[in-house]
Lab assay of single mutants.
Amino acid sequence: CHSECLGNCSQPDDPTKCVACRNFYLDGRCVETCPPPYYHFQDWRCVNFSFCQDLHHKCKNSRRQGCHQYVIHNNKCIPECPSGYTMNSSNLLCTPCLGPCPKVCHLLEGEKTIDSVTSAQELRGCTVINGSLIINIRGGNNLAAELEANLGLIEEISGYLKIRRSYALVSLSFFRKLRLIRGETLEIGNYSFYALDNQNLRQLWDWSKHNLTITQGKLFFHYNPKLCLSEIHKMEEVSGTKGRQERNDIALKTNGDQASCENELLKFSYIRTSFDKILLRWEPYWPPDFRDLLGFMLFYKEAPYQNVTEFDGQDACGSNSWTVVDIDPPLRSNDPKSQNHPGWLMRGLKPWTQYAIFVKTLVTFSDERRTYGAKSDIIYVQTDATNPSVPLDPISVSNSSSQIILKWKPPSDPNGNITHYLVFWERQAEDSELFELDYCLKGLKLPSRTWSPPFESEDSQKHNQSEYEDSAGECCSCPKTDSQILKELEESSFRKTFEDYLHNVVFVPRKT
């Protein structure tokens, strides 16, 4: 048989008469490798580009789960590009990614509803959504962080984005990388972005840091009482949809009607710091009717980097990364020049730590249904340095008659930039024990000054392991946590139920 035959053949030295091919099969003959313009397919066939392209389009058009959109890589027609490569849609070739590779997620039936953290986790790592997304989240724990972890990498949506009755959302900033909504599939009414009845939605994105392009379709905003109209108009300008909307697409009466839409800028007039305090004062603000001013709200939190936005980490279910302080308005003076500047002394802060701070007014709604208010920009203030805590785990070892090696770990709280350490030492008198000992005694162990690591005695271990207080009263049991108490109650309830079950099964009433 021919060298490319495997198993047997019907005619000697003829690659077209093989029972099976050793390498690849091409047009009725066995070959060692697939010549151009053919590609290896499933490690035994040679196919042309049209064959591989037909497989790709067949799966793409069917949208069946589990099928493969075949691509070409290293002269092979394979189910998908290997790690580190992405497909070129024009020629199906796998090309190296520039940075992290995109991950295209194809949605069944063309859309997916995100109504819980669990459903959001199914899209973790996706960068391109081939379909439409509907966000409908009523509640949950730590929602802002969970949504950002699972949806934060999405850069492109081919269909539309719909935010509907998501009472738990305060902001859409968890879509931190969303840059493009194509609108290839539109919501009824030709809408590519749809926001309806979101009672706590206050911000779409921080438009000073976020760009969003909507290729096709219109915007729809109705019944978002805490979303200011200025935020919607800003989205029109940034996304390129200005002029597409009709009169009733953006409701003037049901958007922002319960919001404090600040239209003035508060400026800080005085800032002073110490290692654990920050004193702030800002310019006074009074609405047209000074009785509408209820006070100020001061927001602050630790910020290692200057990239904080107002609604980071917030949701309507209680999660809030900001510390909020309510401040009463100052006494009002008739003389504008003698107006008191409101302020606040922030206490209990960490030394040498940068804080993000902003302040906003708290006002009631005027009778004319106009909203007044003022808010400052987010500023960054760093507390002063102070003395560091003591170095940890000092170790001293003498390696000769004239040297001592000293080692330690950095302090747990540096409280500033540590530039150097101060080492103090003092000579001590020799131990009298060394002169009084009889060095001729056998088995004498000389006193040693070398360091030995501390260890816990058996008594201390027994005390720590004991669940009861000892007789001397030195140790006591740790208080039980809520989960331990709940577990004990469940076990007790189970024992009672099981005992009742045994009584009912074992003891049967005697027939009379």
Score class of each variant (00 low, 15 high):
N255S: 08
D393W: 15
Q245V: 06
L265C: 06
L392M: 15
R124Q: 03
S400D: 14
T241P: 09
L161M: 07
Q245S: 09
T118V: 05
D197W: 02
G110D: 09
F296S: 13
R369V: 11
N142Y: 03
D292S: 08
W207S: 05
K242E: 15
L172R: 00
F365L: 04
P225R: 02
G343M: 05
R164L: 15
V363H: 12
H106G: 04
N224T: 06
I379T: 15
A149D: 11
I278L: 08
L219T: 03
W286T: 08
L252N: 12
G131H: 02
E146Y: 15
T383R: 00
M297I: 11
L143Q: 15
K267F: 11
V170T: 10
W352L: 03
S319V: 08
T241A: 13
R347P: 13
E155A: 05
I357P: 00
L123V: 12
N200T: 03
I181Q: 00
D292C: 13
E262S: 08
R176W: 03
T127N: 05
R369T: 12
L331I: 10
H106K: 04
L123A: 05
Y300S: 06
K226V: 14
W352P: 00
F268H: 01
E262P: 04
D377W: 07
T113I: 06
R347D: 12
S269Q: 06
I134F: 09
P225W: 05
K103W: 04
N248I: 10
A259V: 12
L201F: 11
M346L: 11
E283I: 03
D335S: 15
D326P: 05
V128Q: 01
Y194P: 01
Q216T: 11
S192F: 01
N255Y: 04
L151W: 02
E146Q: 08
G131S: 02
K177R: 10
S158W: 12
L345Y: 15
E264V: 01
S208N: 08
Y355L: 01
A303V: 12
S260F: 02
S321D: 15
G313A: 08
L362G: 06
E187Q: 06
T361M: 10
S389V: 03
R347S: 07
K337P: 14
E231C: 14
K253H: 09
N142P: 12
S402D: 10
L345Q: 12
I114W: 01
L279K: 15
T127V: 03
I181L: 10
G373T: 08
W205P: 01
Q258M: 03
L196V: 14
I188A: 07
L265T: 05
K103A: 08
S274C: 05
S192R: 01
D377H: 04
I137L: 14
M346P: 00
C261N: 05
W282H: 01
M297K: 10
T213C: 14
S366P: 02
G256H: 04
D326S: 06
T241E: 04
P391I: 04
V325L: 12
D257F: 09
V359K: 00
C228H: 14
G348S: 14
S119L: 12
I135P: 00
R138Q: 15
F275N: 08
F358M: 06
K360A: 11
Y270T: 00
R202G: 15
K209M: 13
A149V: 13
P288M: 06
Q403M: 08
L266F: 09
R176F: 02
W286G: 08
K177T: 13
D377R: 11
R247K: 09
T113A: 10
E122K: 02
N200Y: 04
W344G: 14
L265V: 12
A144Q: 08
V397I: 14
L161H: 00
M297C: 06
K226L: 06
S402R: 11
F175D: 00
R281M: 00
K162L: 11
P411H: 01
Q121G: 01
K177V: 08
Q382D: 05
K234V: 12
T241K: 13
L331N: 14
T185W: 08
A251H: 03
M346W: 02
D115R: 04
K218C: 06
L219E: 02
L133I: 02
N307W: 09
L169S: 12
W352K: 10
N224V: 01
D289G: 03
I188M: 02
P342F: 08
L123D: 01
A195R: 00
R347I: 05
N263L: 04
K242D: 14
P225S: 05
R179V: 10
V117C: 02
Y372N: 13
P225G: 15
V325T: 14
K177Y: 11
E246T: 11
D367Q: 12
K242I: 09
R347Q: 08
A259Y: 04
R165T: 14
A168M: 02
P284R: 07
S269H: 12
G189Y: 15
D335N: 06
D326N: 14
N150D: 05
Y194A: 12
H341R: 11
N340E: 15
L107R: 07
Y191H: 11
S119F: 04
S116F: 04
K253I: 10
T113Y: 08
K407T: 15
N263P: 13
H222E: 11
C261F: 04
L349R: 02
E283Q: 00
E122F: 05
S402T: 14
R124H: 15
E122Y: 05
W286V: 04
S239G: 15
C105R: 02
R165I: 10
N334M: 09
V359I: 11
T361F: 03
Y285P: 02
S173T: 06
F299K: 04
G131T: 01
L108Q: 07
Q339L: 10
I395P: 01
F311M: 07
N198C: 04
P287D: 07
D315V: 07
N340K: 04
Y300W: 04
I405Q: 09
E156T: 12
E302H: 11
D328H: 05
N255E: 03
I134D: 15
E184A: 05
L266T: 04
R182S: 07
P342R: 07
A316L: 11
Q306M: 00
H222W: 08
F193E: 00
D335H: 10
V324G: 04
D249Y: 14
F296K: 00
I271Q: 14
G140T: 04
N130W: 02
S376R: 00
P391A: 06
R247A: 10
S132L: 01
F268Y: 06
G125D: 10
E156M: 10
N200L: 09
F311Y: 15
L229T: 06
H341W: 07
L107S: 08
A251V: 08
K234G: 11
D249G: 12
E264S: 09
F175N: 00
L298R: 00
F299M: 13
D335E: 15
F268K: 00
A251M: 11
K253A: 06
Q199E: 15
L279H: 15
D326C: 03
E237A: 03
E368S: 09
G240E: 06
P336H: 06
S230L: 12
F174L: 10
Q245P: 12
G125L: 11
R176I: 05
E246V: 10
S333L: 04
D315Q: 15
Y270V: 00
L280N: 00
Q354S: 04
N211I: 13
Q203I: 04
L172V: 09
N263V: 08
G189K: 03
T213D: 13
K218R: 11
D393N: 05
N255W: 04
A374F: 03
D289M: 02
L161N: 00
A195H: 04
S338C: 03
F299I: 08
L266M: 07
L294I: 08
Y191A: 09
S319N: 14
T215E: 04
M346Q: 05
R291H: 03
S333W: 01
H106F: 08
L169E: 02
R291M: 13
F175M: 10
L147N: 02
N141M: 12
A120N: 02
S338I: 03
L293I: 04
A149Y: 05
